[in-house]
Design a protein around this nucleic acid. Structure first.
Lengths: 214, 214, 214, 214
DNA sequence: GATGAATGAGTCTTCATTCAT
DNA sequence: GATGAATGAAGACTCATTCAT
């Protein structure tokens, strides 16, 4: 239960600005967004923005930091109890895409603006993104340690390959709308990745059918 | 054969502006780039830009159209004589990443700004990107037709999955520099994708080793 | 004797704000100074300022009124027992420059900001400045009455001439630091003014030497 | 006859902005002046200002440099043919005050804003002011060399004393309007200064009358 | 066709002031 | 009285675009 009074008012306003920024950045893009639009969407005065953020850039950076941290924690909470790298990876794919369905605007901002501001964000906000990649990296490491994933794979490379694949699908869904059966699509993608990663015989639950069986 | 005289001078200037825009957009991003910087880099006056392009937006769109067309043609010329969807796909991966090494600034613009301007480009310049995706799509179709790739895969989905994976690696190389052995990395990625796509037993040249064999 | 209790607390805060304003105005200038800086320097909240002053302008005006009144009273107390216009004028010069050494920040504010806000201050705060000029004016009047100063001099003009000379030296000392021997400088200036003002034969204590005697 | 075409247009615009800035700074003060007001007064667009000046500060600095240079040259041209330090000094006083009558707004800006921006101008634009003081300094040096002025005087000190006296009178005339007979006032001031500076017996043309003679 | 000086609309940011607590 | 979070009006500056030469 949040404490009343100032400290609550303060966090409350800051959070409202963050959420408003996600909306406006998603709709107009970072450069197309006006600080006054964010203020209006947050229900605060223009100047109030600057009580909580140093600049417009700082809003974007803060959105990254805050939301990436939140996503990473959410993923970690879901994934940590799961046994087995294969199951973890499958669940990761499903959960990320679930997130896209739940919060398309947030994902749009993170996906579109993260890249567009790549140089700038790489300088100012590398932590959030690095932690996200680490989520994938840990699964890959575990899979290699337990002999499920091919040890010949460069995990530094493949965590980006996997991220890129998921990220592109996220973008597609966010801009073009999700497909009729997102769940099936998510599992197709997970199957694909697992076939690519796993030692022969794995994954047990992804029958390496030949086309005749289809 | 290009017409001589004036019209050649004309294309020459237009082309110089396009190349200059690639440089400047790569260095500063679309929004950070000034039209006057592009003009200076192209060795023309500011106003001259507007003899060849309607607006700053139009420069970006034209860069896309022109360069995407060029890339697609280049890929098609390389891929069309190749026999077999597996070999074609492998070569596609290698060639795209080769392009990243050869023209990092161009790839940076296409990769970073394409996404950033996603909505805007989706509206104004969908052709180039669609044609690029079609290059991957055709390979997938051929693979399914010839029974090499799993027919259960939604090619509309997987051409984006593959594009996303390659695109992310491109971004990494462009912003962080290429790895020590880009050729090996390219083949690792190609192996991964082919394992994901192929019917059991394929690809013939990608031994589905288990970790003991490694 | 100051009133005890609340009213003392009240004047205390008001006075602290005045002193803080002198510091901040001296350091940043009137326009460069932030009300919040003055509040911080005074150890009060921003809003508290407005319990004692109508506006930022009002702070400056109050500084003038208060400090000018104080300076005028101090000068009058020192000068009134002194016999003779010449001695009075000399002492005035010495005491003003002494003040510069003692309270450079105050003098800086009065000297720099008074002029910069000249129009504005002329409208809002003429009393303090007029009283200061009157100090010089009274000395001039006395000197003319007692036949020591030339009666041909327009005292309205010369009180400004004298003020300007002293003011400029004050500014120099305040911004560039005082000279090695400020006392000697003060007397040189006093000698100069007295030679300019006095009837031939005066001042008795300023021998009208020719250069050979030097 | 001014050269036609670009270079003329350019200097012309820059000069118009300078003159407009003098008007607006005189009327509103530096901080009260809006860049758009200067632009309007100069008959140019707001943005045009920034083709000729880096910032609003730069306009003020440029006004100083340019006008101080002009004034110093004007004074030097008038003073250099004059024989004798006494006559030179008298003429300097008269000419400076003549300038006040001719161009009160310019003098107001130089007098009021110079001081207000003292710290800032001392950093950015010391040359113009130093040259102005040097005009007075050279006269004092010459007077001491030729045995007309007291050699005991510190010329570094007295050039400021003299400047301060004249500057204060200038301010008075500029803000309160000139007196009924400015010429007489100028000579009264010159007489005063010369009596203060000169060896006994000098100045020949300033009879050291006693009050009875008046 | 080519130029580049000029334009002026557009926006981030500051900060004096207010007022609910 | 005291606080300081909130306000919002105001302005310096940028830069894509135009057009007279």
């Amino acid at each position: 239960m949040p404490a009343p009074g100032r400290s609550h008012g303060r966090s409350d306003k800051r959070q409202r600005i963050i959420e408003a920024a996600v909306e406006v950045f998603a709709e107009k893009g970072f450069f197309g967004a006006r600080v006054s639009e964010i203020a209006e969407a947050a229900g605060v005065a223009d100047g109030t923005i600057y009580l909580y953020f140093k600049s417009k850039d700082d809003i974007l950076i803060s959105v990254f930091e805050e939301k990436m941290t939140w996503i990473v924690r959410r993923l970690q909470e879901i994934l940590s109890p799961i046994e087995g790298a294969e199951a973890k990876l499958r669940r990761y794919v499903v959960e990320h895409l679930q997130l896209v369905l739940e919060q398309p605007k947030l994902i749009q901002v993170l996906t579109v603006e993260l890249r567009q501001s790549a140089r700038f964000v790489k300088q100012h906000s590398p932590k959030g993104f690095a932690k996200y990649l680490a989520v994938i990296g840990h699964i890959l490491d575990e899979g290699q340690r337990t002999g499920v994933f091919l040890t010949s794979l460069d995990t530094g490379l493949f965590r980006r390959v996997i991220f890129g694949a998921i990220d592109e699908i996220s973008l597609e869904w966010v801009l073009g709308g999700p497909p009729a059966d997102p769940h099936a699509a998510a599992h197709q993608v997970a199957d694909f990745i697992l076939r690519g990663l796993c030692v022969r015989g794995h994954p047990a639950d992804v029958p390496q059918i030949d086309n005749r069986e289809t």
